[in-house]
Simulated assay, not measured.
Amino acid sequence: MGNLFAERMKSVHKSFIREILKVTEDKNIISFAGGLPNPKSFPVNEITDAVSKILSQNGDEILQYSTTEGYLPLREYIAERYSKKGLKVSADEILITNGSQQGIDLVSKVFLNKGDKVLLENPTYLAAIQSFGLFEPQFISVPLLEDGVDIDSLQRILDENKIKMFYSVTNFQNPTGITYSKEKRQKLAEILKNEDIVFVEDNPYGEIRFLGDDIPPVKAYLEDSVLFGSFSKIVSPGMRLGWIVANEEIMEKIIIAKQALDLHSNYFTQRAVYQYLIDNNIDEHIEKIKDMYRNQRNTMVSMIEKYFPENVEYTKPEGGMFLWVTLPEGLSSMDLFELAIKENVAFVPGQAFYVDGSGINSLRLNFSNSNNEQIEEGIKRLGNVIHELMN
């Protein structure tokens, strides 16, 4: 059947992380590989109450088809929450998706033709590479600095190429944990205002800042950009509920693409999440998540300082779920992975997050889904195998 498959499938491969997670199913393995929220943060009892309430009060309606845009009160809730943070959008500019991941697919359908140039951060979110890849674009990478994208490199790339779309994770980036400074966001918006380009800002981690002050999204300075949001990190990833924020012209096309894709996102889940939100204080819940992740992040950083060689570099994120490790030049994180698995500890080698084959000596660590004891023991084991690899 090989000759029957679409040409696009030749350039898209299985998710590297999903394949690694199969290796880590052994309960003896301490895994820093998955991008998983801590299940202790899931509001199980509150969601149970919300589901019971909506089924008992409006069961017939909730189990029916719904509108493509999504449940209006939920979209109004999201819009109001943005307004409290200084970003004015209307419910009509919001569409509910099956996780923010679906947003990548929808904007790709709306904007990308085969061969169009898509600009990605270097490194970037692995699933974005996979999702965009289905539309057969030409990827171009722009380096990241500690405070966001390298503006000089960005300007040079824009001068030399006709870029169709720029995809960015501006808060606590997956995989590096890097956050764009306010100044960098403003400068980025200033540059892109003069370019015929679609800027897509993915913000699944923005609510879980546990150090420092919140920073407005780039969309606050660049009105025609597209912004993604998600309930996966603050309510539940299994409910697969996110959203897209876009202006009227873009939203009209996205709605058409959404209708062709799946008619609408899971209406039952939308109603359950909305009921949960209006019955509970989401900010108090988020504060509990922040406290948990701050503690786990601090433990991982302190253990890295204790057990890793001094010439190993790493990021110190102010939020989110990941930090990024860079080994000395000449070392391979894939070689390290093979050694680490033998010691029952796992991570994601960094090369998977690059489209240009670089990042051989880098790796991503997740701190949100391990307790402090696991973090200490896992980092200790990882430090030992780094020493072994270096020697």
Rank of each mutant, 00 (worst) to 15 (best):
G133L: 10
I191E: 07
A189F: 12
L188T: 11
L145V: 10
F135W: 12
D116V: 01
V198S: 04
L222N: 03
A189S: 14
L211R: 15
Q173N: 15
N171R: 15
Q130M: 13
G115Q: 11
L134A: 06
V169A: 09
Y180Q: 05
D152M: 06
D159G: 02
D147M: 09
L134P: 03
R185W: 02
N174E: 12
E136I: 10
E207M: 14
V198P: 00
L126I: 15
I129P: 07
L145A: 11
K109P: 04
I197A: 06
E136K: 11
E121K: 02
P137Q: 02
M165Q: 07
V218A: 11
K162T: 05
N194I: 06
I151H: 02
E183M: 09
D213G: 05
V200Q: 00
V198W: 03
A127D: 10
T170D: 03
E201H: 08
G206W: 15
Y125H: 09
V142K: 07
Y205I: 10
T124Y: 09
Q186C: 09
Y221D: 11
Y205G: 05
G206E: 15
M165E: 00
F132R: 04
K114Q: 14
N113P: 05
D147S: 14
L119A: 04
N171M: 15
E160W: 07
R156G: 02
E183G: 14
Y180I: 02
P204R: 07
G206M: 12
G212F: 11
N161Y: 07
N161T: 03
F210E: 12
P216R: 13
I208A: 01
L211W: 09
S168G: 03
N122L: 12
F228S: 05
I157C: 09
R185K: 15
P204A: 04
Q138W: 00
I208R: 04
E183H: 11
S131Q: 08
N161H: 06
D213H: 13
Q173K: 15
L227E: 10
L154I: 04
